[in-house]
Design a protein around this nucleic acid. Sequence first.
DNA 1: ATGTTAACAG
DNA 2: CTGTTAACAT
Lengths: 266, 266
Amino acid sequence: MLELRLVQGSLLKKVMESLKDLVNDANFDCSATGFSLQAMDSSHVALVALLLRSEGFEHYRCDRNISMGMKLENLTKILKCAGNDDIITIKGDDGGDTVTFMFESPSQDKIADFEMKLMDIDSEHLGIPDAEYQAIVRMPSAEFARICKDLSSIGDTVVISVTKEGVKFSTKGDIGTANIVCRQNTTVDKPEEATVIEMQEPVSLTFALRYMNSFTKATPLSNTVTISLSSELPVVVEYKIAEMGYIRFYLAPKIEEDEDDTKPQV
Amino acid sequence: MLELRLVQGSLLKKVMESLKDLVNDANFDCSATGFSLQAMDSSHVALVALLLRSEGFEHYRCDRNISMGMKLENLTKILKCAGNDDIITIKGDDGGDTVTFMFESPSQDKIADFEMKLMDIDSEHLGIPDAEYQAIVRMPSAEFARICKDLSSIGDTVVISVTKEGVKFSTKGDIGTANIVCRQNTTVDKPEEATVIEMQEPVSLTFALRYMNSFTKATPLSNTVTISLSSELPVVVEYKIAEMGYIRFYLAPKIEEDEDDTKPQV
DNA sequence: ATGTTAACAG
DNA sequence: CTGTTAACAT
Protein backbone atom coordinates (compact mmCIF):
# COMPACT_ATOMS: atom_id res chain seq x y z
CA MET A 1 0.00 0.00 0.00
CA LEU A 2 1.32 3.33 -1.10
CA GLU A 3 -0.25 6.71 -0.55
CA LEU A 4 1.55 9.98 -1.01
CA ARG A 5 -0.19 13.31 -0.67
CA LEU A 6 1.53 16.37 -2.02
CA VAL A 7 -0.14 19.70 -1.38
CA GLN A 8 2.05 21.58 -3.81
CA GLY A 9 1.01 19.63 -6.86
CA SER A 10 2.65 22.04 -9.28
CA LEU A 11 5.98 20.78 -8.00
CA LEU A 12 5.36 17.36 -9.50
CA LYS A 13 4.34 18.97 -12.77
CA LYS A 14 7.60 20.91 -12.84
CA VAL A 15 9.62 17.81 -12.05
CA MET A 16 8.10 16.04 -15.01
CA GLU A 17 8.80 18.96 -17.30
CA SER A 18 12.42 18.70 -16.17
CA LEU A 19 12.68 15.00 -16.89
CA LYS A 20 10.66 14.33 -19.95
CA ASP A 21 13.10 15.74 -22.49
CA LEU A 22 15.85 13.53 -21.19
CA VAL A 23 14.20 10.29 -20.17
CA ASN A 24 11.54 8.22 -21.90
CA ASP A 25 10.74 5.55 -19.33
CA ALA A 26 11.84 5.21 -15.75
CA ASN A 27 11.19 3.42 -12.51
CA PHE A 28 9.94 5.54 -9.66
CA ASP A 29 11.11 4.00 -6.39
CA CYS A 30 9.17 4.46 -3.21
CA SER A 31 10.55 3.64 0.18
CA ALA A 32 10.20 4.95 3.69
CA THR A 33 12.85 7.52 2.80
CA GLY A 34 10.94 9.07 -0.04
CA PHE A 35 10.02 9.05 -3.65
CA SER A 36 12.99 8.75 -5.97
CA LEU A 37 14.05 8.05 -9.49
CA GLN A 38 17.29 7.28 -11.20
CA ALA A 39 17.53 6.98 -14.93
CA MET A 40 19.87 7.26 -17.85
CA ASP A 41 18.85 9.54 -20.65
CA SER A 42 17.64 7.78 -23.78
CA SER A 43 21.08 7.89 -25.40
CA HIS A 44 22.71 6.54 -22.24
CA VAL A 45 25.03 9.48 -21.82
CA ALA A 46 23.56 11.48 -18.98
CA LEU A 47 22.08 10.32 -15.72
CA VAL A 48 19.36 11.94 -13.68
CA ALA A 49 18.58 11.35 -10.02
CA LEU A 50 15.51 12.69 -8.31
CA LEU A 51 14.69 12.60 -4.63
CA LEU A 52 11.54 13.83 -2.94
CA ARG A 53 11.92 13.04 0.74
CA SER A 54 8.95 11.64 2.62
CA GLU A 55 9.04 14.57 5.05
CA GLY A 56 8.10 16.92 2.23
CA PHE A 57 4.76 15.22 1.68
CA GLU A 58 1.71 16.15 3.69
CA HIS A 59 0.99 12.47 4.03
CA TYR A 60 3.40 9.67 3.20
CA ARG A 61 2.62 6.04 3.55
CA CYS A 62 4.77 3.38 1.94
CA ASP A 63 4.41 -0.02 3.57
CA ARG A 64 7.09 -1.69 1.51
CA ASN A 65 9.56 -0.64 -1.10
CA ILE A 66 8.00 -0.51 -4.49
CA SER A 67 9.30 0.32 -7.95
CA MET A 68 6.85 1.69 -10.48
CA GLY A 69 7.84 1.76 -14.13
CA MET A 70 6.24 4.57 -16.05
CA LYS A 71 6.38 5.97 -19.53
CA LEU A 72 7.06 9.60 -18.76
CA GLU A 73 5.09 10.80 -21.76
CA ASN A 74 1.96 9.23 -20.32
CA LEU A 75 2.68 10.52 -16.86
CA THR A 76 3.11 14.00 -18.31
CA LYS A 77 -0.24 13.75 -20.06
CA ILE A 78 -1.94 12.89 -16.82
CA LEU A 79 -0.21 15.60 -14.80
CA LYS A 80 -1.25 18.15 -17.40
CA CYS A 81 -4.78 17.46 -16.21
CA ALA A 82 -3.94 18.69 -12.72
CA GLY A 83 -4.51 22.32 -11.90
CA ASN A 84 -1.51 24.27 -10.72
CA ASP A 85 -2.79 24.48 -7.20
CA ASP A 86 -4.37 21.06 -7.03
CA ILE A 87 -3.40 18.67 -4.28
CA ILE A 88 -1.97 15.50 -5.78
CA THR A 89 -2.25 12.08 -4.21
CA ILE A 90 -0.40 9.09 -5.64
CA LYS A 91 -1.79 5.69 -4.76
CA GLY A 92 -0.54 2.22 -5.48
CA ASP A 93 -1.17 -1.31 -4.28
CA ASP A 94 1.67 -3.66 -3.45
CA GLY A 95 2.00 -5.92 -6.43
CA GLY A 96 -0.56 -3.96 -8.41
CA ASP A 97 0.20 -3.12 -11.99
CA THR A 98 -1.37 0.32 -11.93
CA VAL A 99 -0.87 3.59 -10.14
CA THR A 100 -3.61 6.09 -9.40
CA PHE A 101 -3.20 9.83 -9.39
CA MET A 102 -5.83 11.86 -7.63
CA PHE A 103 -6.16 15.61 -8.11
CA GLU A 104 -8.22 17.66 -5.69
CA SER A 105 -9.04 21.23 -6.55
CA PRO A 106 -8.39 23.64 -3.67
CA SER A 107 -12.13 24.11 -3.24
CA GLN A 108 -12.65 20.34 -3.17
CA ASP A 109 -15.45 20.71 -5.68
CA LYS A 110 -13.61 18.84 -8.37
CA ILE A 111 -11.90 15.55 -7.77
CA ALA A 112 -10.21 13.75 -10.60
CA ASP A 113 -8.55 10.38 -10.57
CA PHE A 114 -6.41 8.84 -13.25
CA GLU A 115 -5.33 5.24 -13.26
CA MET A 116 -2.24 4.48 -15.29
CA LYS A 117 -0.84 1.11 -16.24
CA LEU A 118 2.67 0.45 -15.00
CA MET A 119 5.40 -1.00 -17.19
CA ASP A 120 8.31 -3.30 -16.58
CA ILE A 121 11.45 -1.33 -17.11
CA ASP A 122 14.97 -2.66 -16.90
CA SER A 123 17.03 -0.37 -14.82
CA GLU A 124 20.48 -0.71 -13.54
CA HIS A 125 20.31 1.29 -10.37
CA LEU A 126 23.81 2.64 -10.14
CA GLY A 127 25.26 3.48 -6.83
CA ILE A 128 26.50 7.02 -7.09
CA PRO A 129 29.40 7.45 -4.70
CA ASP A 130 29.72 10.67 -2.80
CA ALA A 131 32.81 12.29 -4.16
CA GLU A 132 35.03 15.20 -3.33
CA TYR A 133 34.92 17.78 -6.04
CA GLN A 134 37.72 20.06 -7.08
CA ALA A 135 35.30 22.93 -7.51
CA ILE A 136 31.70 23.65 -6.67
CA VAL A 137 29.94 26.62 -8.22
CA ARG A 138 26.62 27.91 -6.98
CA MET A 139 24.88 30.49 -9.11
CA PRO A 140 21.40 31.70 -10.07
CA SER A 141 19.74 28.97 -12.08
CA ALA A 142 18.27 31.41 -14.60
CA GLU A 143 21.71 32.80 -15.30
CA PHE A 144 23.15 29.36 -15.91
CA ALA A 145 20.26 28.52 -18.23
CA ARG A 146 20.77 31.72 -20.18
CA ILE A 147 24.48 31.03 -20.58
CA CYS A 148 23.92 27.49 -21.86
CA LYS A 149 21.29 28.69 -24.29
CA ASP A 150 23.44 31.56 -25.54
CA LEU A 151 26.54 29.43 -25.98
CA SER A 152 24.66 26.74 -27.87
CA SER A 153 23.90 29.21 -30.61
CA ILE A 154 27.67 29.44 -31.19
CA GLY A 155 29.00 25.97 -30.51
CA ASP A 156 28.15 22.43 -29.47
CA THR A 157 30.31 22.09 -26.39
CA VAL A 158 31.07 24.23 -23.41
CA VAL A 159 34.36 24.41 -21.52
CA ILE A 160 33.69 25.20 -17.89
CA SER A 161 36.79 26.56 -16.19
CA VAL A 162 36.87 27.44 -12.53
CA THR A 163 39.40 29.50 -10.65
CA LYS A 164 38.78 31.03 -7.30
CA GLU A 165 37.96 34.34 -8.94
CA GLY A 166 35.15 32.99 -11.03
CA VAL A 167 33.81 30.54 -13.52
CA LYS A 168 34.25 30.80 -17.27
CA PHE A 169 31.99 29.21 -19.85
CA SER A 170 33.56 29.02 -23.29
CA THR A 171 32.61 27.67 -26.64
CA LYS A 172 33.87 27.70 -30.17
CA GLY A 173 32.03 27.28 -33.42
CA ASP A 174 32.08 28.04 -37.09
CA ILE A 175 31.18 31.67 -36.58
CA GLY A 176 33.69 32.34 -33.84
CA THR A 177 34.27 31.89 -30.15
CA ALA A 178 32.51 32.96 -27.00
CA ASN A 179 33.57 33.31 -23.38
CA ILE A 180 31.26 34.19 -20.52
CA VAL A 181 32.87 34.84 -17.18
CA CYS A 182 30.91 34.97 -13.94
CA ARG A 183 32.90 36.44 -11.08
CA GLN A 184 32.41 35.19 -7.59
CA ASN A 185 29.99 37.62 -6.01
CA THR A 186 28.55 37.15 -2.57
CA THR A 187 27.62 40.76 -1.87
CA VAL A 188 24.17 40.75 -3.35
CA ASP A 189 20.81 41.71 -1.95
CA LYS A 190 19.35 38.25 -2.02
CA PRO A 191 21.37 35.11 -1.31
CA GLU A 192 19.91 33.38 -4.37
CA GLU A 193 21.52 35.99 -6.59
CA ALA A 194 25.00 35.14 -5.37
CA THR A 195 27.66 33.36 -7.35
CA VAL A 196 29.75 31.38 -4.93
CA ILE A 197 32.80 29.28 -5.70
CA GLU A 198 34.23 26.65 -3.42
CA MET A 199 37.46 25.51 -5.00
CA GLN A 200 40.17 23.10 -3.95
CA GLU A 201 42.07 23.47 -7.20
CA PRO A 202 41.39 24.98 -10.59
CA VAL A 203 39.54 22.76 -13.01
CA SER A 204 38.56 22.96 -16.66
CA LEU A 205 36.24 20.46 -18.29
CA THR A 206 34.32 20.17 -21.55
CA PHE A 207 30.69 19.12 -21.90
CA ALA A 208 28.10 18.73 -24.63
CA LEU A 209 25.79 21.74 -24.55
CA ARG A 210 22.90 19.67 -25.77
CA TYR A 211 22.70 17.90 -22.43
CA MET A 212 23.33 21.03 -20.41
CA ASN A 213 20.35 22.63 -22.11
CA SER A 214 18.20 19.66 -21.18
CA PHE A 215 19.32 19.96 -17.58
CA THR A 216 18.28 23.59 -17.43
CA LYS A 217 14.68 22.53 -17.98
CA ALA A 218 14.73 22.12 -14.20
CA THR A 219 15.27 25.85 -13.71
CA PRO A 220 11.69 26.45 -12.50
CA LEU A 221 12.37 24.13 -9.57
CA SER A 222 14.98 26.31 -7.92
CA ASN A 223 16.42 29.80 -8.00
CA THR A 224 19.93 28.44 -7.76
CA VAL A 225 21.92 25.68 -9.35
CA THR A 226 25.04 23.95 -8.06
CA ILE A 227 27.69 22.69 -10.46
CA SER A 228 30.22 20.28 -9.02
CA LEU A 229 33.33 19.57 -11.06
CA SER A 230 36.32 17.26 -10.86
CA SER A 231 38.63 15.93 -13.52
CA GLU A 232 37.76 12.36 -14.36
CA LEU A 233 34.32 12.64 -12.72
CA PRO A 234 30.96 13.40 -14.24
CA VAL A 235 29.81 16.91 -13.53
CA VAL A 236 26.84 17.17 -11.19
CA VAL A 237 24.26 19.83 -11.96
CA GLU A 238 21.94 20.03 -8.99
CA TYR A 239 18.66 21.86 -8.46
CA LYS A 240 17.49 21.71 -4.86
CA ILE A 241 13.78 21.25 -4.36
CA ALA A 242 12.75 23.26 -1.33
CA GLU A 243 11.82 21.17 1.71
CA MET A 244 11.90 17.99 -0.31
CA GLY A 245 15.12 17.03 -1.99
CA TYR A 246 16.76 17.59 -5.30
CA ILE A 247 17.05 16.76 -8.94
CA ARG A 248 20.63 16.01 -10.02
CA PHE A 249 21.99 15.58 -13.50
CA TYR A 250 25.29 13.79 -14.17
CA LEU A 251 27.28 14.13 -17.36
CA ALA A 252 30.74 12.81 -18.19
CA PRO A 253 33.22 15.37 -19.53
CA LYS A 254 34.35 15.12 -23.11
CA ILE A 255 37.88 13.94 -23.52
CA GLU A 256 39.77 17.06 -24.45
CA GLU A 257 41.22 17.00 -27.91
CA ASP A 258 43.97 19.31 -26.73
CA GLU A 259 44.03 21.22 -29.96
CA ASP A 260 44.57 24.24 -27.82
CA ASP A 261 45.18 24.95 -24.20
CA THR A 262 43.02 23.37 -21.60
CA LYS A 263 44.39 25.31 -18.70
CA PRO A 264 41.86 27.13 -16.64
CA GLN A 265 42.07 30.77 -17.41
CA VAL A 266 39.38 32.99 -16.06
CA MET B 1 -35.56 44.79 -46.58
CA LEU B 2 -33.43 43.63 -43.69
CA GLU B 3 -31.44 45.78 -41.32
CA LEU B 4 -30.05 44.56 -38.03
CA ARG B 5 -27.89 46.75 -35.83
CA LEU B 6 -25.91 45.07 -33.10
CA VAL B 7 -24.00 47.33 -30.73
CA GLN B 8 -22.00 44.53 -29.21
CA GLY B 9 -20.29 43.44 -32.38
CA SER B 10 -17.81 41.21 -30.61
CA LEU B 11 -20.71 38.91 -29.85
CA LEU B 12 -21.13 38.06 -33.51
CA LYS B 13 -17.41 37.45 -33.80
CA LYS B 14 -17.53 35.04 -30.87
CA VAL B 15 -20.53 33.26 -32.34
CA MET B 16 -18.63 32.67 -35.55
CA GLU B 17 -15.61 31.35 -33.68
CA SER B 18 -17.96 28.89 -31.98
CA LEU B 19 -19.45 27.66 -35.23
CA LYS B 20 -16.72 27.59 -37.77
CA ASP B 21 -14.95 24.46 -36.53
CA LEU B 22 -18.16 22.51 -36.77
CA VAL B 23 -20.02 23.88 -39.77
CA ASN B 24 -18.82 24.83 -43.24
CA ASP B 25 -21.91 26.43 -44.80
CA ALA B 26 -25.24 27.35 -43.31
CA ASN B 27 -28.40 29.31 -43.85
CA PHE B 28 -28.97 32.23 -41.53
CA ASP B 29 -32.69 32.73 -41.09
CA CYS B 30 -34.15 36.12 -40.33
CA SER B 31 -37.69 36.63 -39.18
CA ALA B 32 -39.52 38.99 -36.90
CA THR B 33 -38.47 36.75 -34.04
CA GLY B 34 -34.79 37.09 -34.60
CA PHE B 35 -31.69 35.94 -36.33
CA SER B 36 -31.20 32.19 -36.21
CA LEU B 37 -29.28 29.33 -37.68
CA GLN B 38 -29.59 25.60 -37.62
CA ALA B 39 -27.00 23.35 -39.17
CA MET B 40 -25.50 19.90 -39.05
CA ASP B 41 -21.79 19.65 -38.64
CA SER B 42 -19.89 18.68 -41.76
CA SER B 43 -19.90 15.00 -40.84
CA HIS B 44 -23.65 15.10 -40.10
CA VAL B 45 -23.27 13.90 -36.55
CA ALA B 46 -23.80 16.99 -34.44
CA LEU B 47 -26.34 19.75 -34.80
CA VAL B 48 -26.02 23.36 -33.80
CA ALA B 49 -28.83 25.84 -33.26
CA LEU B 50 -28.26 29.54 -32.77
CA LEU B 51 -30.82 32.15 -31.82
CA LEU B 52 -30.29 35.87 -31.47
CA ARG B 53 -33.64 37.39 -30.60
CA SER B 54 -34.71 40.60 -32.27
CA GLU B 55 -35.02 42.33 -28.89
CA GLY B 56 -31.30 41.98 -28.37
CA PHE B 57 -30.52 44.19 -31.35
CA GLU B 58 -30.43 47.93 -31.02
CA HIS B 59 -32.35 48.11 -34.27
CA TYR B 60 -34.12 45.19 -35.94
CA ARG B 61 -36.03 45.43 -39.14
CA CYS B 62 -37.03 42.36 -41.10
CA ASP B 63 -39.91 42.92 -43.47
CA ARG B 64 -40.24 39.32 -44.54
CA ASN B 65 -38.62 36.06 -43.64
CA ILE B 66 -35.39 35.56 -45.43
CA SER B 67 -32.81 32.81 -45.49
CA MET B 68 -29.25 33.72 -46.33
CA GLY B 69 -26.81 30.96 -47.21
CA MET B 70 -23.24 31.72 -46.27
CA LYS B 71 -19.92 29.98 -46.32
CA LEU B 72 -18.83 30.44 -42.73
CA GLU B 73 -15.18 30.66 -43.67
CA ASN B 74 -15.92 33.77 -45.72
CA LEU B 75 -18.14 35.25 -43.06
CA THR B 76 -15.39 34.69 -40.53
CA LYS B 77 -12.91 36.48 -42.75
CA ILE B 78 -15.18 39.49 -42.95
CA LEU B 79 -15.96 39.57 -39.24
CA LYS B 80 -12.24 39.48 -38.49
CA CYS B 81 -12.20 42.95 -40.04
CA ALA B 82 -14.51 44.27 -37.34
CA GLY B 83 -13.01 45.70 -34.20
CA ASN B 84 -14.08 44.11 -30.96
CA ASP B 85 -16.10 47.14 -29.95
CA ASP B 86 -17.37 48.01 -33.38
CA ILE B 87 -21.10 48.30 -33.97
CA ILE B 88 -22.14 45.81 -36.62
CA THR B 89 -25.06 46.34 -39.01
CA ILE B 90 -26.26 43.56 -41.29
CA LYS B 91 -28.23 44.65 -44.36
CA GLY B 92 -30.00 42.66 -47.04
CA ASP B 93 -32.53 43.25 -49.77
CA ASP B 94 -35.48 40.95 -50.27
CA GLY B 95 -34.57 38.71 -53.14
CA GLY B 96 -31.06 40.07 -53.30
CA ASP B 97 -28.18 37.67 -53.59
CA THR B 98 -25.81 39.57 -51.35
CA VAL B 99 -25.59 40.64 -47.74
CA THR B 100 -23.78 43.73 -46.50
CA PHE B 101 -21.94 44.01 -43.20
CA MET B 102 -21.17 47.46 -41.90
CA PHE B 103 -18.71 48.06 -39.08
CA GLU B 104 -18.66 51.37 -37.24
CA SER B 105 -15.86 52.08 -34.83
CA PRO B 106 -17.09 53.40 -31.47
CA SER B 107 -15.66 56.81 -32.27
CA GLN B 108 -17.48 56.77 -35.64
CA ASP B 109 -14.16 57.66 -37.21
CA LYS B 110 -14.01 54.49 -39.21
CA ILE B 111 -16.87 52.96 -41.12
CA ALA B 112 -16.32 49.84 -43.16
CA ASP B 113 -18.74 47.89 -45.26
CA PHE B 114 -18.35 44.47 -46.78
CA GLU B 115 -20.68 42.96 -49.30
CA MET B 116 -20.71 39.19 -49.50
CA LYS B 117 -22.33 36.96 -52.08
CA LEU B 118 -24.92 34.57 -50.75
CA MET B 119 -25.04 30.91 -51.66
CA ASP B 120 -27.83 28.42 -52.15
CA ILE B 121 -27.54 25.84 -49.44
CA ASP B 122 -29.74 22.80 -49.01
CA SER B 123 -30.87 22.60 -45.48
CA GLU B 124 -33.27 20.33 -43.81
CA HIS B 125 -34.58 22.50 -41.03
CA LEU B 126 -35.32 19.96 -38.37
CA GLY B 127 -37.95 20.66 -35.82
CA ILE B 128 -36.33 20.10 -32.47
CA PRO B 129 -38.98 19.06 -30.02
CA ASP B 130 -38.80 20.36 -26.51
CA ALA B 131 -38.08 17.38 -24.36
CA GLU B 132 -38.00 16.54 -20.72
CA TYR B 133 -34.52 15.61 -19.65
CA GLN B 134 -33.56 13.13 -16.97
CA ALA B 135 -30.81 15.39 -15.77
CA ILE B 136 -29.70 18.94 -16.35
CA VAL B 137 -26.28 20.08 -15.18
CA ARG B 138 -25.29 23.71 -15.03
CA MET B 139 -21.63 24.43 -14.39
CA PRO B 140 -18.94 27.00 -15.19
CA SER B 141 -18.25 26.82 -18.89
CA ALA B 142 -14.48 27.12 -18.42
CA GLU B 143 -14.49 24.14 -16.10
CA PHE B 144 -16.43 22.04 -18.59
CA ALA B 145 -14.00 23.05 -21.33
CA ARG B 146 -11.02 22.15 -19.20
CA ILE B 147 -12.49 18.74 -18.39
CA CYS B 148 -13.18 17.92 -22.05
CA LYS B 149 -9.69 18.97 -23.02
CA ASP B 150 -8.03 17.02 -20.21
CA LEU B 151 -10.01 13.85 -20.90
CA SER B 152 -9.26 13.96 -24.59
CA SER B 153 -5.57 13.53 -23.84
CA ILE B 154 -6.46 10.14 -22.35
CA GLY B 155 -9.32 8.83 -24.46
CA ASP B 156 -11.70 9.50 -27.35
CA THR B 157 -15.03 9.28 -25.61
CA VAL B 158 -16.46 10.58 -22.37
CA VAL B 159 -19.03 8.94 -20.19
CA ILE B 160 -21.12 11.57 -18.43
CA SER B 161 -22.84 10.17 -15.36
CA VAL B 162 -25.16 12.24 -13.24
CA THR B 163 -26.43 11.52 -9.77
CA LYS B 164 -27.89 14.10 -7.50
CA GLU B 165 -24.57 14.46 -5.68
CA GLY B 166 -22.64 15.42 -8.76
CA VAL B 167 -21.60 14.75 -12.30
CA LYS B 168 -18.81 12.41 -13.29
CA PHE B 169 -16.86 12.59 -16.53
CA SER B 170 -14.94 9.41 -17.33
CA THR B 171 -12.77 8.16 -20.11
CA LYS B 172 -10.55 5.23 -20.89
CA GLY B 173 -7.58 4.98 -23.21
CA ASP B 174 -4.38 3.12 -23.91
CA ILE B 175 -2.51 4.69 -21.04
CA GLY B 176 -5.20 4.18 -18.43
CA THR B 177 -8.45 5.63 -17.18
CA ALA B 178 -9.63 8.96 -15.86
CA ASN B 179 -12.57 10.10 -13.76
CA ILE B 180 -13.39 13.69 -12.92
CA VAL B 181 -16.14 14.32 -10.44
CA CYS B 182 -17.75 17.71 -9.93
CA ARG B 183 -19.85 17.90 -6.83
CA GLN B 184 -23.02 19.87 -6.79
CA ASN B 185 -22.09 23.16 -5.19
CA THR B 186 -24.41 26.10 -4.92
CA THR B 187 -22.67 27.85 -2.04
CA VAL B 188 -20.22 29.89 -4.04
CA ASP B 189 -19.47 33.57 -4.10
CA LYS B 190 -20.74 34.16 -7.59
CA PRO B 191 -23.72 32.34 -9.08
CA GLU B 192 -21.80 31.62 -12.27
CA GLU B 193 -19.33 29.52 -10.31
CA ALA B 194 -22.01 27.17 -9.09
CA THR B 195 -22.45 23.59 -10.19
CA VAL B 196 -26.15 22.82 -10.08
CA ILE B 197 -27.82 19.53 -10.84
CA GLU B 198 -31.49 19.11 -11.59
CA MET B 199 -32.11 15.42 -11.79
CA GLN B 200 -35.22 13.33 -12.28
CA GLU B 201 -33.28 10.10 -12.38
CA PRO B 202 -29.64 9.11 -12.69
CA VAL B 203 -28.31 8.96 -16.21
CA SER B 204 -25.08 7.85 -17.81
CA LEU B 205 -24.30 8.46 -21.46
CA THR B 206 -21.27 8.24 -23.72
CA PHE B 207 -20.17 10.87 -26.24
CA ALA B 208 -17.33 11.49 -28.63
CA LEU B 209 -14.92 13.97 -27.06
CA ARG B 210 -14.00 15.35 -30.43
CA TYR B 211 -17.41 16.99 -30.73
CA MET B 212 -17.51 18.07 -27.11
CA ASN B 213 -14.25 19.89 -27.64
CA SER B 214 -15.73 21.66 -30.66
CA PHE B 215 -18.74 22.70 -28.61
CA THR B 216 -16.53 24.25 -25.95
CA LYS B 217 -15.32 26.76 -28.53
CA ALA B 218 -18.44 28.65 -27.45
CA THR B 219 -17.05 29.11 -23.95
CA PRO B 220 -16.31 32.84 -24.48
CA LEU B 221 -20.04 33.41 -25.03
CA SER B 222 -21.09 32.52 -21.51
CA ASN B 223 -19.69 31.91 -18.05
CA THR B 224 -21.91 28.90 -17.63
CA VAL B 225 -22.92 25.93 -19.70
CA THR B 226 -25.99 23.74 -19.38
CA ILE B 227 -25.82 20.07 -20.23
CA SER B 228 -29.17 18.31 -20.64
CA LEU B 229 -29.15 14.54 -20.70
CA SER B 230 -31.63 11.79 -21.31
CA SER B 231 -31.21 8.22 -22.44
CA GLU B 232 -32.14 7.87 -26.08
CA LEU B 233 -31.97 11.63 -26.67
CA PRO B 234 -29.14 13.72 -27.99
CA VAL B 235 -27.38 15.67 -25.27
CA VAL B 236 -27.91 19.41 -25.44
CA VAL B 237 -24.94 21.59 -24.58
CA GLU B 238 -26.23 25.12 -24.27
CA TYR B 239 -24.44 28.43 -23.89
CA LYS B 240 -26.83 31.27 -23.16
CA ILE B 241 -26.08 34.53 -24.91
CA ALA B 242 -26.94 37.32 -22.51
CA GLU B 243 -30.01 39.36 -23.48
CA MET B 244 -30.21 37.66 -26.84
CA GLY B 245 -30.64 33.95 -26.96
CA TYR B 246 -28.42 30.93 -27.06
CA ILE B 247 -26.21 28.61 -28.98
CA ARG B 248 -27.11 24.94 -28.52
CA PHE B 249 -25.21 21.90 -29.63
CA TYR B 250 -26.87 18.50 -29.99
CA LEU B 251 -25.00 15.22 -30.09
CA ALA B 252 -26.37 11.71 -30.07
CA PRO B 253 -24.94 9.40 -27.44
CA LYS B 254 -22.78 6.52 -28.51
CA ILE B 255 -24.39 3.16 -28.14
CA GLU B 256 -22.73 1.69 -25.14
CA GLU B 257 -20.70 -1.38 -25.85
CA ASP B 258 -21.42 -2.58 -22.35
CA GLU B 259 -18.01 -4.05 -21.94
CA ASP B 260 -18.25 -2.87 -18.39
CA ASP B 261 -20.79 -1.20 -16.18
CA THR B 262 -22.73 1.72 -17.47
CA LYS B 263 -24.43 2.49 -14.22
CA PRO B 264 -24.04 6.01 -12.98
CA GLN B 265 -21.72 6.00 -10.05
CA VAL B 266 -20.51 9.33 -8.85
C1' DA C 1 -3.11 25.59 -41.57
C1' DT C 2 -2.93 23.91 -37.15
C1' DG C 3 -1.47 22.81 -32.68
C1' DT C 4 1.79 23.54 -29.08
C1' DT C 5 4.54 26.19 -26.33
C1' DA C 6 6.93 30.28 -24.43
C1' DA C 7 6.59 34.91 -22.81
C1' DC C 8 3.64 38.74 -20.90
C1' DA C 9 -0.11 41.28 -19.07
C1' DG C 10 -4.14 41.83 -15.92
C1' DC D 1 -2.35 32.43 -11.44
C1' DT D 2 -5.17 32.66 -15.48
C1' DG D 3 -5.77 34.46 -19.73
C1' DT D 4 -3.99 36.16 -23.85
C1' DT D 5 -0.78 36.67 -27.29
C1' DA D 6 3.24 35.75 -30.09
C1' DA D 7 6.31 32.79 -31.91
C1' DC D 8 7.44 28.33 -33.18
C1' DA D 9 7.30 23.77 -34.86
C1' DT D 10 4.73 20.36 -37.14
